[in-house]
């Protein structure tokens, strides 16, 4: 027998000795299919305004900055302003996301660099798939639209999301993901809940361990 068969046989013998195999299989299928939720914290079950307020509050508590805008068209100017405020070059990495591609970046005097991140890229912008208010989390999905390396390589990461993408709980986020990706989840789903940090030196929290030192979140109404 192979290692695989040995391991599975031992598990069966020890964990489920004498149990009816078809009944077990049925129980497992039922569990996998039900997507039953456990307790969802009350804070994750609020109306839209409450969700956005909570998302913002937790993100800011985690040293991210948050800006709310009325229209997507205002995003390039806000990003140009953000880069200026932090004395950063007006250059921005991004993928092929259609919502971002349709904006007037040239009008804000921003130079774009498309595709995956490289070592020189200082600032990048991604469109979030969703956000989860209960923990102040942005949900990003991999692919040509928003390459994963943009989330981790640059020093400054700017994430844009629409207000109606702010979910209350992780579970609401998974339901939205299942609806959007019928054939199974994308290669990578990233939960991002602030700029990179470490507590490995004397338990002092310091930002920018390996990933972005700054995280700026733009919520568009």
């Amino acid at each position: 027998m192979s290692g695989r068969e040995n391991i599975l046989a031992r598990i069966r013998a020890h964990a489920a000795a004498g149990e009816d195999e078809p009944a077990r299989a049925a129980r497992v299928e039922a569990h996998l299919g039900a997507h039953a939720r456990g307790t969802v914290p009350a804070r994750g079950q609020q109306d839209k305004a409450g969700r956005i307020a909570l998302l913002r509050q937790i993100l800011e508590g985690q040293s991210a900055s948050v800006r709310e805008l009325d229209a997507l068209g205002a995003v390039p100017a806000e990003i140009a302003d953000y880069l200026r405020r932090h004395n950063l070059a007006p250059r921005l990495g991004m993928g092929d996301d259609a919502a971002l591609a349709g904006l007037d970046w040239g009008g804000a005097n921003l130079e774009l660099r498309h595709g995956r991140a490289n070592a020189e890229l200082e600032s990048a912008c991604s469109m979030a798939f969703a956000a989860v208010a209960e923990s102040g989390t942005l949900v990003l999905t991999s692919g040509p639209d928003n390459p994963t390396s943009l989330n981790f390589m640059p020093d400054n990461h700017i994430i844009v999301l629409r207000a109606d993408q702010v979910m209350g709980s992780y579970e609401d986020g998974w339901d939205a993901l299942r609806a959007a990706f019928a054939d199974g989840p994308p290669r990578t789903v990233n939960y991002v809940s602030g700029p990179s940090r470490t507590g490995d030196i004397e338990q002092t929290i310091l930002l920018g361990a390996h990933g972005p030192r700054r995280l700026h979140v733009i919520i568009v109404k």
Partner: peptide, 24 residues
């Protein structure tokens, strides 16, 4: 573990780079 609501990064990975993926 650390008293955080959630760790800064939680990553869900399924398989290798897909067609059209610029990284991974």
């Amino acid at each position: 573990a650390t008293g955080q609501e959630i760790s800064t990064y939680t990553t869900f990975s399924a398989g290798p780079r897909r067609e059209g993926d610029p990284d991974g």
